[in-house]
């Protein structure tokens, strides 16, 4: 029977165990990912299984790396994400966090746009590092994406996003993530997208100051607008933004973008919550 071993089609005898594949094809491998999930060496493989054998601690060759990075993606899902393009408007707390998650998930192309540079007060919540202070955010973010997944194509624009350039920046995106800080900027982008790219879904981050109150963070859909956040907690003097809650909102946005690209995950069931957390 045929299986896919590290993305190559190989013939194995029915009833073969992972340990035998290791011995024959990849001596030294000590981790097996079967159809996107780790399995034991004693596991028996079935026809058309996708098996990835990894030797922990060993740096793979560049040629090997891409399918090893994709080993924990569900077969089929990765191929679809690889063809997708997500636009990210703003590379601050929301944009940098959403971008890293989408890059790790294997989205093929990310368009990132921001005019600003990394400064020290960004580091309380944005995915940058001390040694990147002073770098343009789009350069720093592109570098961090490359370190996590070098197979993502990053299209970077160091530019202030205004109504006049929205269409040119994001016309190729399948989904756009709004990741600005200020409300007037969010409104500008939403208005521009509704008028100029009305068919492109826009995922907005709206209300995520402070900490806690996980249950209030949610996603609401209004036509082609997908609104993530609590829609109430406005950042201001004495009510700052913190990495966990901004990050949670950014990851809701990234997660929503995946659902838009792939359709609802058929494996997730929506049963009623049996043990609600008392407040």
């Amino acid at each position: 029977m045929k299986i896919y071993l590290n993305e190559k089609k190989v013939t194995v005898t029915p009833g073969a165990k992972v340990a035998e594949l290791v011995k024959k094809h990849k001596p030294g491998a000590d981790l097996c990912i079967l159809n996107g999930f780790p399995c034991l060496m004693e596991h028996t493989v079935a026809a058309n299984d996708r098996v990835v054998l990894i030797e922990k601690g060993k740096r793979p060759s560049k040629r090997e790396l891409e399918h090893l990075l994709a080993a924990r993606h569900t077969p089929g899902v990765h191929a679809r994400l690889k063809k997708a393009c997500v636009g990210i408007a703003g590379c601050g707390g929301l944009g940098s966090t959403a971008a890293m998650a989408l890059a790790r998930a294997g989205v093929g192309t990310l368009i990132i746009a921001d005019f600003d540079v990394v400064e020290p007060s960004n580091l309380n919540r944005q995915q940058y590092y001390v040694d990147q202070i002073g770098e343009a955010k789009v350069d720093a973010l592109a570098g961090n994406i490359r370190r996590a997944n070098p197979y993502v194509q990053v299209v970077k624009h160091r530019v202030r996003i205004v109504r006049q350039n929205v269409k040119a920046l994001f016309r190729d995106a399948d989904v756009v993530i709004e990741a600005f800080d200020r409300a007037d900027q969010k409104l500008m982008l939403a208005d521009a997208m509704l008028d100029l790219l009305p068919k492109t879904p826009l995922v907005i981050g709206n209300g995520m100051a402070g900490y806690g109150a996980n249950d209030l963070l949610r996603t609401r859909r209004v036509g082609n607008l997908h609104i993530c956040g609590d829609e109430a907690s406005e950042a201001g003097h004495g009510f700052g933004l913190m990495a966990p809650r901004v990050g949670a909102c950014a990851l809701l946005q990234a997660n929503q973008a995946l659902e838009i690209l792939l359709g609802p995950d058929p494996r997730i069931t929506r049963s009623e919550i049996r043990n609600p957390i008392p407040r």
């Binding site: 800080d181 981050g205 709206n206 907690s233 933004l241």
Partner: peptide, 10 residues
Amino acid sequence: VAVIHLITGG
């Protein structure tokens, strides 16, 4: 009718 109130933070 949907009314979305955009607020600062991000």
